[in-house]
Amino acid sequence: MSDAAPLIAVDILTGFLGSGKTTLIRRLVEGGCLRDTAILVNEFAALPLDQRLIALSGGSARVVGNGCICCVVDGSVRDALIDLAERRASDEIPPFSRVLIETSGIADPAGLVATLALDRRLKPRFRPGRVVTLIDLVEDETPIEAISPEALSQIVCADLIVLSKADLAPAASPDAIMRRVTGLNPLSQIVVDDGLLDPFDRTAFPEAPGRPQPGRSFIAAPAAPRHDAIRSGVLRIAGPVDWQAFATWLSLLAHRHGGKLLRLKGTLTLSGGDGRPVLVQSVRHIVHRPEHLPADSAPDGLELVVILRDLEPALLQRSLEAFLRAGRVPALSATG
């Protein structure tokens, strides 16, 4: 086992402009929920207003970038994270056990997730944490995900979706938004903010092992006309699978169709393995490092939720089956 320091989780709070991100952070700071957390705020505007608001609540936030996080992520966000880690190591700043990044409202969080998963200087210190997306219940006739590709990506990348501003829309029913959002991302939990909620509390909202939430439709119908191209589904294989055949399939799929493979998450048990399921997930071209889960925490075999653009889940199922079946046939040689 490694004796290195544990990796610090980097949680991401995202949501479209005006969805209440800074309000939520202020509330969490005031409630003492972020005591051991370093906060990074990405502001699109030159004026660091959100930073000032968080400071008013007694928190301390550092602004990164003067532009959208998906545009500056390779520079200032990475530098800010490395700087945080180094200053923590030299006791220049109080110790912290996690980082929370508030993205700008027009950010696509997929780029940030990719950087956290891949950057060689970040990987020894940080790991991708939870993506929380706020959606404003007070919406007009245009669904939020139809406004921009970034808003859609914020929903698709989410591990937990919080419906905000329920107090400002007392007559609004969240059911329609929940159905729509479920159709776009069956992996995420969805909760309505009651004014007390801490979406980063792992006890209240434990990590989901990559299965669709109970009661969700597995093959989701597109809810908004502009999202006819978005499909979700579950790929299933009975029994343990061969890792090399699976990894070859997933790496080639992400390489060739990563732009359409919006999200993939699920578990598999491995032939020849120790029985513990392995959690696999990807966002577009980026496949996260797989994780072992405790034994018996997931069904035997393979179960992967996929969210796709312009692709059918049934085609992926056929492709996966073909790769796994071929993997059981001895190759004539190791060359093509």
């Binding site: 490694s2 290195a4 990894a247 070859t248 790496s251 392995v278 072992h292």
Partner: peptide
Amino acid sequence: CGLCGSFTDIHWSTGPA
């Protein structure tokens, strides 16, 4: 297992196998 080792820079495909 590669997942539990100290090398954090290995490619994901190497991980659990």
